[in-house]
Design a protein around this nucleic acid. Structure first.
Lengths: 123, 123
DNA sequence: ACTTGTGTTGACGTCCACGTCAAGGCGGAG
DNA sequence: CTCCGCCTTGACGTGGACGTCAACACAAGT
């Protein structure tokens, strides 16, 4: 299939696919007229990239998963490098959540304080 | 004081202060030679901006707080507009935290699954 | 007099994941 | 032949909060 069909079937855009190629995430065979040619395996790669990116993974973080599929594994997370990314991501998320909770609590406290000042002495 | 001193005392940079001025957050009197002149009230404004920005507020969100101080209030959150920003921010943070927790749990599940596949049948 | 430090404005660079436009080629339908 | 839809590459735009550099002026210290 050509790039337009791959874009439609993977729920992304031709621009994004060319961008992935520029990053080396995707590689395309070329037809005689220079057009990019893809197969079902490429579709799988793009699905892997998109599902990870949609979750919040940086494109660079999807690289091990893509490589893993290229190496013939049936899932992108069958390799140690991918699992390592999972672990890092969970830790990152934990950190981020903790920080945001602290900030939220701080803002909440400020909010309560400000509200109290605006209507002092009950009510 | 001039811009360099204000930057040092507020823990930011001259570039940032000029940027705030370009946004209308800060306004400076000019000395005879064209240099910006600030006073202690300006320092308070910058402190307000920085403490909110450090927490994760967009610069635009600090505007009501700055205006509030300009209007003579002793704290930037003494005005209704500021309190409204607090409320919006708490809601935003709650949303963000919830989403991140869902993602983290999802990634954790993927991680466990991948780990199980790699060493099947106990151990 | 010279250097150093400080200030001025203006403009471009950074990061990320593309969107958007330009300018053109190729293939098939009418 | 013309039109339409698809493809190609290349280059610039987006947003947020500045960093960095250029090219210059002014003031103080030695």
């Amino acid at each position: 299939m050509r790039i337009g069909e791959l874009a439609r079937r993977s729920g992304t855009t031709t621009r994004a696919l060319r961008y992935y190629e520029s990053l080396g995430l995707l590689t395309a065979r070329r037809a005689a007229n220079g057009q990019r040619e893809y197969d079902e395996d490429d579709l799988k790669l793009v699905h892997e990239i998109r599902s990870l990116a949609d979750i919040g993974f940086a494109l660079e973080d999807t690289r091990p998963f893509v490589q893993c599929l290229r190496d013939g594994h049936t899932t992108g997370d069958a390799c140690a490098a991918s699992v390592e990314v999972y672990r890092r991501k969970v830790a990152e998320l934990d950190d981020c959540i903790t920080r945001l909770q602290a900030v939220r609590d701080q803002v909440r406290a400020q909010l309560r304080e400000a509200e109290q000042r605006s209507r002092p002495c009950g009510r």
